[in-house]
Amino acid sequence: MDKTVAVVGGGVAGLAAAAALNQLGYRVLLYEKEAFTGGNVRNWDRLFPKARNAREVVDELASSLTGLTEIATGTFVNSVKSTDGLFEIESSGRPAYADAVLLTTGFELFDARKKEEYGYGIFENVITSADLEKMFASSGKPLMADGSEPKKVAFIHCVGSRDEKVNKPYCSKVCCVTAVKQAVEVREALPECEVYNFYMDLRMFGTGYEQLYKEAQVKGVNFIRGRLSEANETRTHQVMIKAEDTLVSRPLQITVDLVVLMVGMSPAGSTMTILKSLGLLGNEDGFAGIANAHTGSTLTLKKGVFVAGACSGPANITDSVNEARAAALRIHQYLGGV
């Protein structure tokens, strides 16, 4: 068999799909706009629920690729044209043709500066969950801008999720459990540090998540149900935050050393560009549109074009990898392999 599948996006979904397609005997052209594969997961330190090293997951998926996959890193796909069942991939690299296209373009982190009242990019001790992962990776603990250890850390859930004011009405699914994981990690790294999590609901949907939440409570993380209204920097560069504790219906104000914004998942810019070039539409949230929610989550309305992972909506690694392998099977069916 000499059929070729173009996989756009070399994150966990792209890697898993490419590996599965290789096993089915297909040649794969794997496009990755960054210099390395691994996508957003590559920038993470440890993963919920069991603190597995993120790099290990990426490496495992990457190592299962065979010689049938040609990886084009640092290559940005501009458009895909379809003619008589053949897809022409126009990218920043050399033009190529494929018999089927799989979008695994994933997500981008929400730009926290759009929530200006939280002070990201303005107050030096306001960081995002992704910044915190970097800190864990480099120094194993959170640090304030001046290099000292924080004594009070606040995690703000739902930044760029479930927020119509920033045009992100949907839930990003994984930030709740990430915040709980990171809160536990902060308590473990700095046992004297007080940790507060400001949440709307805690959506602990996956195996082991609820247990992690319980563990966090046991380890002394404070959970306050209420959304932040605003943050202000004090003269000592601490951050004073205002919120409402909706469980006791009282406004509250606390000053913390470090604020961590749990940024949600936004559609990757390239998803819509590529969909549009194929004459396809996005869903109401701007992610890739799928054929149907229950039995066609890897299909689009165009034959030969498939999607997997977070490019069609917020997803965790488990679901992204599963969807990628399911998409590989769908592609196999489409190309007449079954």
Binding site: N125, D131, A145, G147
Partner: peptide
Amino acid sequence: MHKPADCLEEVEI
């Protein structure tokens, strides 16, 4: 802003 790694430069000294 879309690259967490770059953001970090702003908060570390």
